[in-house]
């Protein structure tokens, strides 16, 4: 259990997908103009990461691995299968949410399709493979990674809302400022690298 908490903390703060690996930057920069929309996208990312990570783990180990169903190394199919899982899960999640919670669907609506091409989702799955996690670790990594991404997008959205009132040079307005801020937040998050994850065991 301690190990899982450890992985959760590590993936949420120390190896934050957005601020340490800079994954999912496209939607991170595009949808962080207000806290409200950022909140919706962040929730959707946690949701989809938490669902696709275990599924991709199962596919990677039981279908593609050498000890899997086919007894051959099929890892070259990894990209295609992972992205197909992500795309179809997003579609499925969208349909389920639309049916059972129209209010949540209305707030998430446009962000769900966007998530298919959010690198944080595919990147998370690929990191999971390269770090050789087992099933429960993969779940913890998915949730932690999603939570870290959620925190990061909320934080930048809050800063961007405030910075509207500052006198920024015209050429730097909007996008340029968002880049600078993200860089600074990344530096701040580097400070967390000093945390010893072993302390949570």
């Amino acid at each position: 259990m301690g190990d899982l908490v450890n992985i959760f903390i590590k993936s949420a703060f120390i190896e934050n997908l957005a601020l340490a690996y800079f994954l999912g930057m496209c939607s991170y920069l595009a949808v962080s103009k207000t806290v409200k929309t950022a909140f919706g996208l962040g929730l959707a990312v946690i949701f989809v990461l938490g669902i696709t990570m275990p599924i991709n783990w199962v596919i990677n180990t039981w279908l593609l691995g050498e000890n899997g169903v086919f007894q051959t190394d099929l890892t070259f199919l990894r990209f295609i299968l992972f992205i197909a899982v992500i795309a179809s899960m997003v579609q499925l999640v969208e349909m389920v949410v639309e049916k059972y919670s129209p209010s949540l669907y209305n707030s998430l609506g446009i962000f769900l399709p966007l998530i298919t091409v959010n690198c944080a989702i595919l990147g998370g799955s690929l990191f999971m493979v390269s770090k050789e996690y087992n099933f429960s670790e993969a779940v913890a990594f998915g949730l932690g990674g999603g939570f870290g991404w959620f925190l990061a997008i909320i934080a930048i959205a809050a800063i961007r809302e405030k910075i509207k009132y500052s006198a920024v040079p015209p050429a730097m307005r909007g996008l340029g400022m968002a880049f600078l801020l993200t860089g600074m937040m990344g530096m701040a998050f580097m400070g967390l690298m000093g945390i010893d994850p072993a302390a949570f065991k």
Binding site: A20, Y21, F22, P169, A171, G176, F179, L180, G183
Partner: peptide
């Protein structure tokens, strides 16, 4: 070499490009 500097470099590039 660290990640944040990429952000800074691109920010300055955007600044220069838009100016």
């Amino acid at each position: 070499v660290l990640f944040p500097s990429a952000m800074f470099v691109i920010a300055v590039l955007i600044w220069a490009h838009r100016a």
